[in-house]
Design a protein around this nucleic acid. Structure first.
Lengths: 142, 142
DNA sequence: GATTAACGTAATTACTTTGGTTACATTCAT
DNA sequence: ATGAATGTAACCAAAGTAATTACGTTAATC
């Protein structure tokens, strides 16, 4: 699919949730995600702006969760890294001569809003603690 | 955002719903959407495969709805033109040394399924007739 | 104060997706 | 036979994305 920022962000948050109050540098996070530290840092900045983590520079720096995993939902993580609509809209202005073309954009905006809210509602039910539990369960059954 | 096939498909279906039993050639549909006929035809093929429309070649050919707008949901339209997951996943295999990396893909798949189902549930509540009604309401208030 | 580990960020690259376009073979009503 | 329409292949340009390199900045520690 299109982009994997949400998956990366949940992964990072889950690692930070493994050991509360432990600071993880971006290089270590990048190792477990298996990508470049800069890619991780770009995501960390968005998680900071959303108030989900705190980051310190310098030796023994790195990132740490601001809240316990029970208090963080996937909805918050997603909205931190994934701005924009769920569906794409017409790149070119539709024909204003056609009754549908004249109004479709507005209608589709409303549809997109409804769908987006449904998505957020569902992700709001899942916490980072849920993810950590499922990760551990998969770990045991593996 | 990423792609506008869903918006195009709803637009096309709405135009076809304007006049029941009237065949619209791809060139006319392309005019109201304001794009190239080939782009429309690619979408029409997917709508055909989903059983939503019927298309005839030759003179006086074109596409027509198979069902009344009250019987078509946006969920069907979307699933016709939008395959694939809601969220992207890790492009590179995460580190298997990390308990999170080892299991995150499976967990994110489940999250994606849940989110996808929530999205489908919402779109299943909206019919093409609803879209046509909203289009007409916008028309009147304009 | 020098060293060093870490972040922040700009610039660049390679790749993929996507919509748009042209061209042409095929179908089929008249 | 004509001609209007679809189906489809090939190609292009633009946009988005992860990855990478490089470098300036911060701040803990000796």
């Amino acid at each position: 699919m299109h982009n994997c920022r949400f998956a990366f962000a949940v992964h990072v948050m889950a690692v930070l949730g493994l050991e509360k109050d432990h600071r993880y540098p971006s290089t270590r996070l990048a190792e477990t995600v298996n990508t470049n530290p800069v890619v991780i840092r770009r995501i960390l900045i968005e998680l900071q702006e959303a108030g989900l983590i705190s980051t310190l520079r310098g030796p023994h720096g790195g990132s740490v969760l601001n809240r316990r995993p029970e208090r963080v939902t996937l909805r918050e993580i997603r909205s931190a890294v994934e701005k924009g609509q769920v569906f794409g809209s017409h790149p070119n202005e539709p024909s204003r001569k056609c009754p549908v073309g004249k109004n479709i954009n507005k209608v589709m905006m409303e549809v997109g809003d409804r769908a987006g809210r449904a998505l957020e509602r569902e992700l709001g039910k899942i916490t980072l603690a849920d993810v950590l539990r499922e990760v551990r369960e998969s770990e045991n059954s593996a």
